[in-house]
Design a protein around this nucleic acid. Structure first.
Lengths: 265, 265
DNA sequence: CGAAGAGTTGAAGCTCGTCAATAATCGTGG
DNA sequence: CCACGATTATTGACGAGCTTCAACTCTTCG
């Protein structure tokens, strides 16, 4: 492999028996009973460590399994023929890539890893059986994929309508919100994410050079510090204001107030 | 109402008894029996004409129904506080806005109408009952929403990574492919779509002025003509080449080769 | 016909990209 | 553990793409 490995210092698995992050994630959508929790644990029993820069899913393939990120960070992306790359999203612990394979037959993008990560490999039949047996789980997984789509809309708006400074501010707000929700944000260390400025650029549709200058401006204005792939947010309220950030699209907290339809009880 | 009405010359309903475009759409995903076709017709029996500039769904609302576009064009969008608008997608005949309401409780964007259109209003309970009774329909609707997400990724890539000229070329290719698939493309008249350059600009993250200049360049280079809200593509191969367009993400033709999992037979 | 919206044009300027070179870091192997 | 090569970060100069502003014309529709 030509590319250097990024160290595994980013593995987010807490020491000791880590609880399955998917369970906490689904709990934000539905109430899970013991049976359902056991089913999820069983579904995720096939764990594997994957190294940085490996590819979980590649464009055009027809996967027979989905992966759940347990620790570390994955990301979706695609290259254009001119060599440019667009990143479509980051998968943090508790995120699945991709439930859509259950239905659509082939992937239209790649999923790679930013750092050494732990994933659970779930075969499609196992996933299907679990969803059929536990409609609540099916419903929650469906909701996850809808939140994915909401994030895509938010990114499209971000890339389309804001200037470079605001784009980055918005992205950092999103990251911050997601890290907080996962309990991965450490007040002193900030957001510990294995991103390079290259990835930041390919996320926002900017060049590395310009991203670098914007980061310096953030530092200069006392908003945040970027160093050695840590993001330290110094003035969150101001950042949020600049970006016009509103976390509700992430649906991190609020449980769906009431089940809307009996069929999904 | 302050805004002028766009004429209803864009109603795509063929004269005579129009077949339900949703049926043709779903047929690209699954094989439908007579029972299922009847169920879809029944579900869509509540038809309504909606005038241009009316709003079908607004941000923050909790709809108890979904709308199916039968003729005309709708579009998803959101405004930022600074007055800028991002358009997330266009809904052509056969498109639903939005199945996601079945699951997520509130809309994060608006759905408006570009021209006088005919829609079928489907209450959530009716939709649910149909989906429960006909798993194939449920599966096809799910696939539709996954194609929606694929389109969002494609747009993000487009807005993020291509220059203004390529962006527009790509957009016109997409439109052309969708119009062809719907049988709405008339070789002599081209794509008859009630878009203004303002909407084009808000779709691509550009200004009206720049969009205008790019359209002139298209005309100048003999690629396409934009006049009175018709798009006449003169050199499709070249346009496709310029944009790096590949229609497969739209999944217009190929039926899912085989059902992947028995549960959804 | 008249008013409002949409399309078009030109000039000026800023954001952001490109090119190119250097410095700092990182990961790996010696 | 240090040294090396590759990747990443940083800097400057320059230029292009796109925006902004402002005026004007054309189209649409009541």
């Amino acid at each position: 492999m030509l590319v250097q490995h990024r160290s595994s210092q980013y593995s987010h698995a807490a020491s000791g028996r880590p609880s399955n992050p998917l369970i906490n994630r689904l709990k934000t959508f539905v109430t899970l009973g013991d049976e359902e929790i056991d089913a999820i644990e069983a579904m995720c029993s096939n764990r594997r460590v994957v190294r940085a820069n490996e590819i979980l899913v590649s464009e055009g393939c027809r996967p027979d399994r989905v992966c759940l990120v347990l620790s570390g960070v994955a990301f979706r992306y695609r290259f254009l023929s001119n060599g440019r790359r667009q990143i479509f999203g980051y998968l943090l612990p508790g995120d699945l890539c991709d439930t859509q394979f259950v239905i659509l037959n082939e992937s239209d993008h790649n999923v790679g890893l930013l750092c050494d990560s732990e994933v659970a490999v779930i075969s499609l039949p196992v996933l299907m059986r679990t969803m059929v047996a536990f409609p609540k789980i099916e419903r929650a997984l469906l909701m996850m994929s809808l939140v994915d789509a909401a994030m895509l809309r938010e990114w499209l708006l971000n890339v389309g309508q804001r200037d470079a400074f605001q784009k980055l501010a918005h992205f950092f707000c999103e990251l911050s919100a997601r890290y907080h929700a996962l309990g991965l944000y450490e007040e002193d260390k900030g957001i510990n994410i294995p991103l390079t400025q290259i990835e930041l650029a390919d996320t926002m549709g900017l060049t590395v050079v310009h991203v670098n200058r914007m980061l310096q401006r953030f530092r200069h204005e006392g908003l945040l510090n970027w160093s050695r792939r840590h993001v330290n947010i110094l003035n969150y309220p101001q950042l949020e204001y600049l970006a016009g950030f509103d976390a509700s699209y992430l649906r991190l907290q609020q449980k769906c107030v009431e089940p809307r339809l009996c069929a999904y009880g």
